[in-house]
Amino acid sequence: MDDNKLEYYKNKLIKERKNVKDLILQMKKNEVINSKAEIASELSLYDNHPSDVATEINDMEKGMAFKQNEVHILKKIDNALLRIQEHKYGICKQCGKPINEERLEFIPYAENCVECQERLSSIKPRDINDRPVEEEVLKYPFGVGYKGNSNNIEFDLEDSYDAVDSYNRLEDEAGYYYDDTEYVDKMDSISNEQYKNQLPD
Rank of each mutant, 00 (worst) to 15 (best):
A40C: 06
I24R: 00
E105A: 08
Y9F: 14
Q94V: 12
D22K: 11
D130L: 06
N192V: 10
V32R: 05
L45G: 05
V144A: 03
C113Y: 00
C92K: 01
N129M: 08
Y176P: 03
R119E: 13
E102Y: 04
T55H: 15
S160P: 04
S189T: 06
P50L: 08
E101L: 10
A80H: 01
S121K: 15
K62I: 14
E134S: 12
C95L: 02
E86C: 01
E182S: 05
N58A: 15
E193I: 08
A80W: 00
S44R: 06
I190K: 09
F155L: 10
E115F: 05
N112E: 12
D59Y: 11
E173S: 09
K18I: 11
L120K: 07
E7K: 15
D201N: 14
Q85F: 02
G63L: 03
L104Q: 02
Y161N: 14
I33G: 02
K5C: 06
E42D: 09
A37Q: 15
S35T: 04
Y167N: 08
K93V: 05
K124Q: 10
D78N: 05
S35D: 15
N34T: 04
T55Q: 13
N30E: 14
S189I: 02
F106D: 10
K67L: 13
E134V: 11
G63M: 03
N48P: 03
E154R: 14
V184P: 01
V114D: 07
Y167M: 07
E134W: 03
L81K: 01
A65E: 07
L81I: 03
G148F: 02
P98G: 04
E31Y: 09
I73R: 04
A174L: 12
I153G: 11
K67V: 00
N34D: 15
N197W: 07
F66L: 10
D185W: 07
D22V: 03
V20R: 02
A110V: 00
S121Q: 14
M187F: 07
V133N: 12
E86L: 05
S191E: 00
I84P: 00
G63R: 01
S166R: 09
V184R: 10
N11L: 06
H49K: 15
K186S: 08
Y167S: 10
Y176T: 10
D159N: 12
Y195L: 10
S189G: 04
H72Q: 13
D162C: 08
H72Y: 09
K10G: 01
D2T: 09
G90E: 01
I128M: 07
A163T: 13
K67Q: 14
A163E: 15
A37G: 10
